[in-house]
Simulated assay, not measured.
Amino acid sequence: MAVSTSRAGRPADHRRRPDAVRADGAEPTVSHRAVRPTRRLVLAAGTLAVAAGAVAVLRPFESTGEDVPDAPGDAAGTVLVPVAYQFDSDAPAAGPRLRALADTIVDADYDNRDGRYTYHHTKAWGGSVMSSDDGRHQVAFVDETKVWRAADGTGRQANKQLEPQYPDQASRDYWQRELAKHRTGTGTPAPSAFPLPILAVPALPADRSGLRDLLKVVHGAGATSKQVNTVYGDYAVPRQTRAEILRVLADVPGFRWRGQVTDRVGRRGVAITFDDREHDQQNLLIFDPKTGGLLAHEMLTFAPVRLGAYQVILDTGWTDQPG
């Protein structure tokens, strides 16, 4: 059985969870958007990105002489549901709200600390998606990553594969049957850790012009969304720079304010989205309403609507010793 890395859309009958609260206390309105068919997407180097051209092919169940390991964690896995928005329809332009947020943010825990290494702890889903032959059913494993990195690039990275997750119930049912056929009881994949090579980390610009270049504003809000995720995954972004990033985003056309949301690990945040009609996907950025730091980045595919990929930033800090 051949399987391929891909992103597909969530079925139209899957509705958003009512887990965000409207300003007036009511549950958010659920609506769906009709757009063109989706393109394939990949998660590369910890950054959500659009794939250009062909994608790699995974063949985990063909006769290679290797056993297929048991799924770690919750072997059954979970079905992913898009984050609920406070403003699901008629969302206002994000610019004024982002500028107001930039003016009120406070220090993050790491702002008053220092150390030789920056530390990032993330979880991501959607990096290598296994798809059935007909492309209808997908599964991917959650990847947990911890990175300690010095200014010269040296440090340590630890990766761990967690439970499988599915974009819909039909995919969960299909892959549970397939995994049961081929599982041999060999156990879960062992965590991997490895040293990082010398590769100097460029200084993070603090001025508006430098941040616009870094965030690829010239290429539009879709590219900028992905670059924001990259920046927060690479740097312990200081308070004033976090404020400038919000102001840069406020000036980028196309972002809509989605209001209060709850991310995938239960943290309250505020969100903006950009509907990328060219690539038939929606980019979602969730920010901490106090510090202005990025909590999560997600991509939602359309027609039908379902989750394509996500990354949550669980912790950022400074330390003198790699873990």
Rank of each mutant, 00 (worst) to 15 (best):
Ala2Ile: 15
Ala2Thr: 15
Ser6Gly: 11
Arg7Val: 05
Pro11Ala: 09
Pro11Lys: 10
Pro11Met: 13
Asp13Cys: 07
Arg17Val: 13
Arg17Pro: 00
Ala20Cys: 08
Ala20Arg: 10
Arg22Ser: 09
Arg22Cys: 07
Ala23Met: 01
Gly25Val: 09
Gly25Met: 11
Arg33Thr: 13
Ala34Leu: 15
Pro37Glu: 12
Pro37Lys: 11
Arg39Gly: 15
Val42Thr: 15
Leu43Ser: 04
Thr47Lys: 15
Leu48Phe: 05
Ala49Asn: 10
Gly53Tyr: 03
Gly53Pro: 12
Val55Met: 15
Val57Gln: 14
Pro60Arg: 11
Phe61Glu: 08
Asp67Thr: 14
Val68Tyr: 14
Pro72Tyr: 11
Gly77Trp: 08
Gly77Val: 03
Thr78Gly: 10
Val79Met: 12
Val79Lys: 09
Val81Ser: 13
Val81Phe: 11
Val83His: 01
Val83Lys: 00
Ser89Trp: 08
Asp90Met: 05
Ala91Lys: 06
Ala93Pro: 02
Ala93Lys: 11
Gly95Arg: 04
Pro96Ala: 11
Leu98Arg: 05
Ala100His: 10
Leu101Phe: 05
Ala102Arg: 05
Thr104Tyr: 07
Val106Cys: 08
Asp107Lys: 07
Asp107Ser: 08
Asp114Glu: 14
Asp114Val: 03
Arg116Leu: 13
Arg116Thr: 14
Tyr117Val: 02
Thr118Val: 13
His120Cys: 01
His120Val: 06
Gly126Ile: 05
Val129Met: 07
Met130Glu: 14
Asp133Glu: 15
Arg136Gln: 09
His137Leu: 05
Gln138Asp: 14
Ala140Trp: 01
Ala140Ile: 03
Phe141Gln: 00
Asp143Asn: 04
Thr145Asp: 01
Lys146Trp: 04
Lys146Pro: 00
Val147Phe: 08
Arg149Tyr: 08
Gly153Pro: 04
Thr154Ile: 02
Gly155Ile: 06
Arg156Ser: 03
Gln157Thr: 04
Gln157Ser: 08
Asn159Leu: 06
Asn159Phe: 00
Lys160His: 06
Gln161Val: 10
Tyr166Phe: 15
Tyr166His: 10
Tyr166Lys: 12
Ser171Asn: 10
Ser171Phe: 01
Ser171Ile: 02
Tyr174Thr: 06
Arg177Leu: 09
His182Leu: 07
Arg183Ile: 07
Gly185Ala: 08
Ala190Pro: 07
Pro191Ala: 09
Phe194Glu: 14
Ile198Lys: 15
Ala203Trp: 06
Arg208Ser: 10
Gly210Ala: 08
Asp213Asn: 13
Gly220Met: 10
Ser225Lys: 00
Val228Tyr: 00
Asn229Gly: 15
Pro238Leu: 05
Gln240His: 14
Gln240Asp: 15
Thr241Phe: 02
Arg242His: 03
Ala250Val: 09
Pro253Gly: 08
Pro253Leu: 12
Gly259Pro: 00
Gly259Lys: 00
Gln260Ser: 09
Thr262Phe: 03
Gly266Trp: 08
Thr273Ile: 08
Asp275Ser: 09
Asp275Gly: 01
Arg277Ser: 12
Asp280Phe: 05
Asn283Trp: 11
Ala296Ile: 01
Met299Ile: 15
Leu300Ala: 01
Thr301Asp: 07
Phe302Gln: 13
Val305Met: 10
Val305Phe: 10
Leu307Gly: 05
Leu307Ser: 06
Gln311Asp: 03
Val312Asp: 13
Val312Phe: 03
Gly317Ser: 07
Trp318Leu: 07
Gly323Glu: 07
